[in-house]
Design a protein around this nucleic acid. Structure first.
Length: 900
RNA sequence: GCCGCCGUGGUGGAAUUGGUAGACACGUUGGACUUAAAAUCCAAUGGGCCUUAAAAGCCCGUGCCGGUUCGAUCCCGGCCGGCGGUACCA
């Protein structure tokens, strides 16, 4: 008995690869071309891997294995992004030290990844929580500080009392914490900030050089949010305020200045108190109070209904000396631009709405719309009107030209400048948590002071109480012995920084550490860095489109500026794997009376009872599914995998049932890598059957050992007993060609399809030459490495280890002969692909009416082929219906007769 | 609202980017093997028309409507639907 049993062969080969360090990347090998293929390293959660992880990991593993066989020096590492909130939350609940939880989870992840046969160099594993690693995270922070890119500020932050920490804007969703969904309020606190805004332009411009999905680049562009316009200064009307003040606004539409009929300050704007007149004071105070209490969610909810209060003060429009009222309203944000706007209701939708509500004047200054009906916002087509004073006129100028003219005038008059504003804000870089990198900073006499490099790493103190304090002080503040220290320079008493870095810190530079994980003189060995960088391919989920990828680019550019790295960008090529959804679900709906209701996408009320149906209970009707035999439409869709929905697939279960090779193969066979795709257990079954077929292609299930069809192809001494025939060679070389091109193009699904076609054909051969099967195993091996290794060993035993029985030499750095991992990738021969005959499709008026076979050596002779086409019976019948007015001849493909 | 991506059989998806739409796989149906099941193998499988039946043939068909072309899943214009991101950003 010798069936395909992945449970027997997979662990064996995994152990072999580990023990022999088959995939170790040699430090000294820098002659060959390099290929650095990188996975986004995982956060090792207690839940273990989900099937989304192996998707990207399998793709990169296929490429790593393929490139190795093509003679490249491949760097294919993995590690752990292991700081973070879940381990700390768990510690608070159970008292287990986050380090212990983290290490357990890492062990689990490592075991799972190894069980999938990924060809990582396990000697390069990095772990962001390892002091030997975060020593360099801290070092980079010191560099940022030296560059003036790290500073302390008291900023209103998103304070989440429940989690006892502040959150970054991106960790707050709809006014609630992303983790846990707890309410979040604004509270000013002392924080570390990183000046990412100083790099905004470079982060934006250098996107153009990157081979990334356009959608990701666009998201980063939007996130940076660069706008060009002008800052304009509006002096206050004399006497309306106690001091001489002016309001500076940012506008992208300086061309509409003549249409500014009022101004709006953000409620938090510092000028508000100073300009508000006596009788307005109480109204303003109460409005500001309400606004301060509103969360971001509330503010957006009020989207439609704008509110505001008049300050009683007036400003002077610099272009026409008009006195215009100054209001406050919460549709103006303090955090963008200058926190104040000039309102041009004629040409801005928000201002128009506000002006309508409070009866403020609306003036048309750009022709093209009807400002009594709606704001006219077109900035390309419009032409300025009503826009002139004694010195300058914009009238009849198109908008872009008018912007330039008025900006120049403002600059001459000293009441404005050309200005650029970004949506991007400085990066809030500290967290009130225990389980993160400590800052290498002490406070002496209340002032921050960086510690010298030779004090690194600053390790976390041992603690057993990880509970945050109610005041927002970080848990580290409780470690009094650790906190109280002395300044190494002066010996003065000092206190350590008790905030820790956010989780993003460690992942900002890990791709550098893999290059020289044991290097002691810096984050990365400069010699090695020059050889390995940049990363040739980075694969990961689109959820990191903005934050991780923007932060990492920022750090990389800083490291580039100080000469620590040699490339401007870390990742020139990026691919996002698409999310894997749960299995397709059919859901029917019952109303309160228990009657089935047709599923209507728009109005699925929560009142309805949801009934899960099986595939056999439904049928297709038009473009929808209905309950079999009825007209009741059901909802048919796949959902994101989630614990609550109960549709999570655990890779361990798949491996246990079908093996790692089947899981790998299925993940790739589902569809294009970048696409969102639903999981299907039956699909796994399908590729598993394919692997069993490959097994039987070579092995005899009944008697064990290599089957007769294969054994008969060699003599007892291992020499070939038969030569492969032309058809066999043609199929082999076609498959090599297709699989090679598909791997290069990341079309793994169609590569697998080609391997299936080969197998289906080869199963029919009565004699299966080893010299054909061996190259097939080589091209199968990146996809299903365990099975390929096993069968390769069986064929090796059959044909002798010396000659590998193929025309393809071994070229690997390891010569142990026991693995195919370093065999040369087979090359196809064009001559063997040639067919004896070519098939033409023959069309009449664009419709296929027949096919003709033409001997290959005559297939380009137009007259000969056309003649054969005309004589094809199915074609002739249609030609007789009229006169041929045109003949289209596409060599080796198609003929089209146009008949009238 | 804005930005980006995507609509192909019962299902996942192919189609050398303008040249035989539906490769490969799942599912389904029928058959073989088996005491039986599993496994395996063989055949059919987009919808419809014609025909006693088969072969052959014909019509329709890549979200919808139109255009360019000898020929369109592919290019252009206009809609509809789905997914993701983002949102008072001045």
């Amino acid at each position: 008995m010798s069936e395909y049993k992945p449970a027997d062969i997979e662990p064996k080969w995994q152990e072999y690869w580990l023990n022999n360090k088959t995939f170790r990347t040699d430090h000294n090998d820098r002659e060959r071309p390099k290929f650095y293929v990188l996975d986004m390293f995982p956060y090792p959660s207690s839940a273990g891997l989900h099937v989304g992880h192996p998707e990207g990991y399998t793709a990169t593993d296929i490429l790593a294995r393929y490139k190795r066989m093509n003679g490249y020096n491949v760097l294919h590492p993995i590690g752990w992004d292991a700081f973070g909130l879940p381990a700390e939350q768990y510690a608070i609940k159970t008292g287990t030290h986050p380090r212990d939880t983290t290490n357990q989870n890492i062990d689990g992840f490592r075991r799972q990844l190894q069980a999938l046969g990924f060809s990582y160099d396990w000697d390069r594993e990095v772990n962001t929580t390892d002091p030997a690693y975060y020593r360099w995270t801290q070092w980079i922070f010191l560099k940022l500080y030296e560059q003036g890119l790290a500073y302390e500020a008291s900023v209103p932050v998103n304070w989440c009392p429940e989690l006892g920490t502040v959150l970054a804007n991106e960790e707050v969703i709809d006014g609630k914490s992303e983790v846990g969904g707890f309410p979040v309020e604004r509270k000013p606190m002392r924080q570390w900030m990183l000046k990412i805004t100083a790099y905004a332009d470079r982060l934006l411009d250098d996107l153009n050089d990157l081979d990334w999905p356009e959608s990701i680049k666009e998201m980063q562009r939007n996130w940076i949010g660069k706008s060009e316009g002008a800052n304009v200064i509006f002096p206050m009307k004399a006497g309306t305020s106690s001091v001489e003040e002016s309001i500076e606004v940012f506008t992208t539409r300086p061309d509409t200045l003549f249409g500014a009929t009022y101004m709006v300050l953000a409620p938090e704007h510092p000028l508000v108190n100073r300009i508000t007149t006596g009788e307005q004071k109480s109204a303003i105070a109460s409005y500001r109070n309400t606004a301060a209490k509103k969360s971001d969610l509330d503010r957006t909810d009020l989207n439609k209904d704008k509110t505001g209060v008049f300050t009683g003060a007036y400003a002077i429009n610099p272009v026409n000396k008009e006195e215009i009222p100054v209001w406050i309203a919460d549709y103006v944000m303090m955090s963008y631009g200058t926190g104040a706007i000039m309102a041009v209701p004629g040409h801005d939708e928000r201002d128009w709405e506000f002006a309508r509500k409070y009866d403020l004047p609306i003036i048309e200054v750009v022709k093209g719309g009807d400002v009594t009906k709606e704001a006219y916002v077109d900035s390309e087509e419009g032409v300025c009107v009503n826009s002139a004073n004694d010195e300058v006129s914009l009238n009849d100028l198109p908008v872009p030209k008018a912007k330039k003219v008025i900006t120049k005038w403002l600059e001459e008059k000293d009441c404005g400048t050309h200005a650029v504003t970004y949506k991007l804000r400085d990066w809030l870089f500290s967290r009130q948590r225990y389980w993160g990198e400590p800052f290498p900073v002490i406070h002496v006499d209340g002032k921050p002071k960086p510690l010298p490099e030779d004090h690194l790493p600053i390790t976390l103190p041992e603690m057993d109480d990880f509970q945050p304090t109610k005041t927002g002080e970080p848990p580290l503040a409780k470690a009094k012995d650790w906190v109280n220290t002395t300044d190494p320079d002066t010996g003065k008493p000092a206190v350590r920084e008790t905030n820790t870095m956010p989780q993003w810190a460690g992942s900002c530079w890990y791709y550098l550490r893999y290059i020289s994980p044991d290097y002691e003189q810096g984050p990365v060995d400069p010699e090695m860095e020059k050889y390995w960088m940049p990363v040739d391919l980075y694969v990961g989920g689109a959820e990191h489109a903005v934050l991780h990828l923007l932060y990492a680019r920022f750090w990389h550019k800083v490291l580039y500026d100080i000469g620590a790295v040699s490339t401007k960008e870390p990742f020139y090529r990026l691919v996002n794997q698409g999310m894997i959804l749960g299995e397709l679900e059919f859901t029917a709906f019952k109303d309160a009376a228990g009657e089935y209701v047709t599923a209507d996408r728009s109005g699925l009320s929560d009142e309805l009872e949801r009934i899960k149906l099986l595939e056999k209970d439904v049928e297709k009707r038009g473009d929808r599914f209905v309950i079999k035999g009825t007209d009741t439409v059901v909802d048919a869709r796949s959902f994101k995998m989630s614990k609550s929905r109960g549709n999570v697939i655990n890779p361990d279960d798949v491996v246990a049932q079908y093996g790692a090779d089947a899981l790998r193969l299925y993940e790739m066979f589902m569809g294009p890598l970048e696409q969102v795709k639903p999981w299907s257990m039956q699909g796994v079954e399908g590729v598993y059957r394919f692997l069993k077929r490959v097994w039987r292609l070579i092995m005899d299930e009944e008697f064990g050992g290599v089957n007769e069809a294969v054994a008969h192809s060699v003599n007892d001494d291992g020499s070939p007993a038969v030569q492969p025939d032309r058809a066999q060679l043609k199929l082999l070389h076609e498959t090599i060609k297709k699989v090679t091109a598909d791997i290069e193009g990341h079309r793994f699904n169609t590569a697998i399809s080609a391997l299936m076609i080969f197998t289906n054909e080869a199963m029919k051969w009565e004699v299966r030459p080893v010299s054909v099967l061996k190259p097939f195993l080589l091209i199968l091996s990146p996809f299903a490495p365990h099975l390929a290794e096993e069968l390769w060993a069986k064929l090796g035993a059959l044909s002798g280890k010396q000659a590998n029985g193929t025309d393809f030499p071994s070229n690997g750095p390891t010569e142990d002969g026991g693995t195919l991992a370093h065999e040369a990738w087979p090359k196809y021969e064009e001559a063997l692909l040639r067919a004896d005959s070519k098939t033409y499709a023959v069309q009449v008026n664009g419709k296929v009416r027949g096919q003709i076979e033409i001997p290959a050596d005559r297939s380009s002779e137009k007259d000969f082929v056309l003649d054969a086409a005309r004589n094809e019976p199915g074609v002739r019948r249609h030609l007789e219906k009229g006169n041929v007015v045109k003949e289209i001849f596409v060599p080796n493909r198609v003929i089209n007769f146009v008949v009238k």
